[in-house]
Amino acid sequence: MKHTILVNDMTCNHCVGTVRGALEDALQGAEVEIDLDSHKVSFEGDRAKGEAAIREAGYTPEAA
Rank of each mutant, 00 (worst) to 15 (best):
N8M: 06
D9Q: 05
D9A: 03
D9V: 05
T11L: 13
T11W: 09
C12V: 06
C12N: 08
C12I: 07
N13P: 09
N13M: 14
N13L: 11
H14V: 09
H14S: 12
H14I: 12
H14W: 07
H14C: 05
H14Q: 10
C15K: 02
C15L: 01
C15A: 02
V16H: 02
V16R: 01
G17L: 04
G17D: 02
T18D: 06
V19N: 04
V19G: 04
R20F: 02
A22N: 07
A22E: 10
L23F: 00
L23V: 01
E24R: 14
E24K: 15
E24M: 12
D25E: 15
D25T: 13
A26W: 08
A26G: 08
A26K: 11
L27T: 09
Q28T: 15
Q28C: 11
Q28G: 13
Q28V: 15
Q28A: 15
G29T: 11
A30K: 12
A30W: 15
A30F: 15
E31W: 02
E31H: 08
E31I: 05
V32I: 08
E33D: 14
I34W: 04
I34L: 13
I34N: 07
I34V: 14
D35C: 03
D35T: 10
D35Q: 08
L36K: 05
D37L: 14
D37G: 12
S38W: 03
S38Q: 01
H39K: 10
H39S: 09
H39E: 03
K40P: 00
K40W: 03
K40V: 06
K40G: 00
V41A: 03
V41G: 02
V41T: 01
V41W: 01
V41M: 05
V41N: 03
V41E: 04
S42F: 04
S42N: 06
F43P: 13
E44K: 11
E44M: 09
E44F: 12
E44G: 14
G45K: 09
G45S: 06
G45N: 08
G45F: 10
D46C: 08
D46K: 09
R47K: 15
R47T: 10
A48L: 04
A48P: 05
A48C: 03
K49E: 14
K49H: 11
K49S: 14
K49N: 12
